[in-house]
């Protein structure tokens, strides 16, 4: 395993009443990286986070933290802090007392506590809020208190469980940038759980896509988006056209009734595969110039681009383009070989 690995999950499985929530999960987290667990609800991402935090025990497997097995170490003895989904701020304490909680438990000297708390409140842009009650804060402010309360303990790893879920869109975007900046400034490993793919792509160094308790793909946001490993990842990250295809030989694939050049190899001859093409990778041309053709069946204006559904009898193709063709027009479509992603068919589970 790599030297700068801070957390290493080894064959983690978790069952609740005989139902497998996590199935043989292996994951290592590097120091100072921003790692996101991404997946639909019920995919096991929160359970994974709670196992790292110590709130759940894995049924099988080990949690290694800086080379030591901490599987059975209770949460309060771990150098890991958590920002909970609903912030979980203590309602009977003011902002200062909330942030100082962890330091008070450690019985640090009073002046050090107040120094570190005000430092931390400055970091999250809440200086002057010390005496305010939690109920008087807005969602975004409560969020920041929760982050400050966790970070003030100088954990080696910060776990964040969908911390922006309760905020409105504008605030969420702001907090995304702020969180990312904060992570760079403090240099702490962040493990972030979300079901929002855009959030994951924006903030992360590494994205872990999960589904049904199994890791589907681990990679950088660019890798995950451009080279999805399977149809699930492709469908979950961004929008995509997924159609059935047949691999004739290396670098040659057939779909939509036509044969295309591609950059994929290593499939069996005549193997049935999934072809994934991003809507923005389909280029609109005249019917004569197109590799294949279709008729526009709907047009939606999306701001930056138009979204058109083009039907060619076999399948509906979603196209994102700044050029608009009215409904009923026959158009041609071209796609570059490197934008055709060929994937093994996943057996439906």
């Amino acid at each position: 395993m790599e030297k700068n690995c801070i957390i290493d999950l080894k064959s983690i499985s978790k069952e609740y009443d005989g139902v497998k929530v996590l199935d043989n999960l292996n994951l290592y987290v590097r120091k100072n990286e921003f790692l996101t667990l991404l997946g639909p609800s019920g995919c096991g991402k929160t359970t994974t986070l709670r196992i790292i935090g110590g709130f759940e025990q894995p049924t099988e497997g080990k949690v290694i933290f800086e080379g030591k097995d901490i599987t059975n170490v209770p949460p309060y003895k771990r150098q890991i802090n958590t920002v909970f989904q609903k912030y979980a701020l203590f309602p009977h304490m003011n902002v200062f007392e909330n942030v100082a909680f962890g330091l008070n438990i450690k019985r640090l000297p009073k002046d050090e506590i107040s120094r570190r708390v005000s430092e931390m409140l400055r970091l999250v842009n809440l200086q002057g809020f010390e005496k305010r009650s939690i109920q008087s804060l807005s969602g975004g402010q409560q969020q920041r208190v929760a982050i400050a309360r966790a970070l003030v303990n100088e954990p080696k790893v910060l776990l964040l469980d969908e911390p922006l879920g309760a905020l409105d869109l504008k605030l969420r975007k702001e907090m995304q940038t702020e969180l990312k900046n904060m992570q760079k400034r403090v240099g702490i490993t962040f493990i972030y759980v979300t079901h929002d793919q855009e959030e994951a792509l924006t903030m992360s160094d590494t994205v872990v896509v999960m589904d049904k308790g199994v890791i589907q793909q681990i990679g950088t946001p660019v890798d995950i988006y451009n080279e999805p490993k399977n149809a699930f990842v492709a469908r979950f990250i961004g929008e995509s056209n997924i159609v059935d295809g047949i691999m004739h030989e290396d670098f040659v694939v057939e779909f939509a009734g036509k044969v295309f050049k591609c950059v994929d190899k290593g499939f069996a001859k005549g193997e049935k595969i999934d072809v994934v093409i991003r809507p923005e990778d389909l280029e609109i041309t005249t019917p004569e110039e197109g590799q294949f053709t279709g008729v526009v069946s709907s047009v939606t204006f999306k701001g930056v681009h138009y979204e058109m559904i083009v039907s060619n009898g076999k399948a509906d193709w979603k196209i994102h383009s700044t050029i608009m063709k009215p409904v009923g027009t026959e158009i041609g479509m071209r796609v570059a070989p490197e934008n055709i992603h060929v994937m093994k068919k996943v057996k439906e589970r």
Partner: peptide
Amino acid sequence: DNSLIESAEDLGANKFQIFTRIILP
């Protein structure tokens, strides 16, 4: 809320401290 108890635990409080500082107040 159970998450209050979990977050106190997360911040280093043992069972006794969770009781005196969170549950009792």
